[in-house]
Design a protein around this nucleic acid. Structure first.
Lengths: 215, 215
DNA sequence: GAGGGTCTTGAACGAGCGTTCGACGTGGGC
DNA sequence: GCCCACGTCGAACGCTCGTTCAAGACCCTC
């Protein structure tokens, strides 16, 4: 077998970046994760073949089974790590926010929106491929997603209790907001008409309106 | 081949209902559409095999190609008709609504929410299987979806222009609202804690808050 | 009763699927 | 210098995929 370049390993220099990678991952596992994000994000779990993913990672299909249990195991790893990133970002934003309810909601909305813009494909997979998850892994992922929703529920309820938000349905309003912010991943394109910061600012303002915050 | 019952044709009595069916469709085409809604709604386009769909419809796989061009053609038909139902319901609601901006937005939100609750699987497919659509049909579907979004844009802009809504970003708020209402299809279960009417009422109220309507 | 169009069928096609396996190259420990 | 463990590979496994096809069942028309 002859390749175009002689010395360099073929996978070097490939674009293999994803927020899902962790420092102690082996390079090939990282490349597979990044490739799976690309291919599954574009075609969905069932629409992405192991050969597609391996090819995008610059390796052979067989290597996937050295680093993961199966294609399903790869999906679970992706969803699990993706939700960790999201929950972590939201919790960090809440820790840094002050005591004002509007500031707190604004902070977690901004964090949620930013993750869904910056890790667009990872977010898409985490939201639309839940149905492709099989029994053991599924419960884990659903639990983490519920935890993220409960963060929002708590902040909105707290704001209502303290009189800052006037919505009559705190939990529904919280779900309303998270769903709207999550959907950004379906349409956002870097370099579009609006700067990312501007989108964050607008969604923060609309979210505050949605919970009945009076400016 | 022997079947359990002797006289009745096997497909009679099967649950084959979908809002996508039209009066002049042949019964088998209707059954295939209903089955495709069930199977694709549960597993996605790539996760639903032609054999699965045919089996759910009580027919053979080959029959699909007598009533549709291909599996892809079936998907296009489903998405096309599903969006027709949605746009039609929204336009009808607007026609029946009065002149008051809050009434108008409330009416289209209620219609949008109701369609996504009552035709849950059809809506899920229309929203999450856009990426499985291939070139010729895709543009048609995207155009219809954009038309639905523009209905909301217009109502919100109109309300802002007339001073009823105070949001500073009408188009973003409109997209915020449609995304939140669309997502109902992902979690709503008939017979859940909330009555459908109650969900509609709450989402209408939150949507009005989101565009800055002052009660 | 014969003829023809429509609807339906089981069987088969080649292609691609997820997964497994045995062999190969390589680099650090003895 | 030997060796083993590890990451990697091409090739192949059995299976399912979307699709086609020739033939049968049905029903309306003459």
């Amino acid at each position: 077998m002859a390749r175009a370049e002689s010395a360099a390993p073929p996978r070097r220099g490939r674009p293999a970046s994803t927020v899902l990678a962790r420092p102690d991952d082996e390079p090939t596992a990282t490349a597979l994760l990044a490739a799976a994000v690309q291919v599954m994000g574009a075609n969905g779990y069932h629409g992405a073949s192991v050969r597609d993913i391996a090819s995008a990672a610059g390796t052979s299909p067989a290597i996937l089974y050295h680093h993961f249990d199966s294609k399903q195991g790869l999906l679970v790893t992706m969803c699990d790590r993706g939700l960790d990133v999201l929950v972590r970002a939201t919790e960090d934003a809440l820790d840094l926010a002050g005591d004002d309810p509007a500031d707190r909601l604004g902070a977690i909305v901004a964090a949620h929106v930013r993750v869904h813009m910056e890790s667009q494909r990872e977010s898409l997979i985490g939201n639309s491929e839940l149905r492709a998850l099989e029994a053991p892994g599924r419960a884990l992922i659903v639990a983490k997603r519920d935890a993220q929703q409960r963060l929002f529920d708590r902040v909105v309820r707290d704001g209502v209790r303290r009189g800052a938000f006037t919505t009559e349905h705190p939990d529904d309003a919280a779900r309303f907001v998270t769903a709207a912010c999550t959907s950004i991943a379906t349409w956002y394109r870097p370099g579009g008409a609006l700067e990312a910061d501007e989108i964050v600012a607008r969604y923060r303002a609309i979210a505050l309106d949605a919970v009945g915050y009076r400016r």
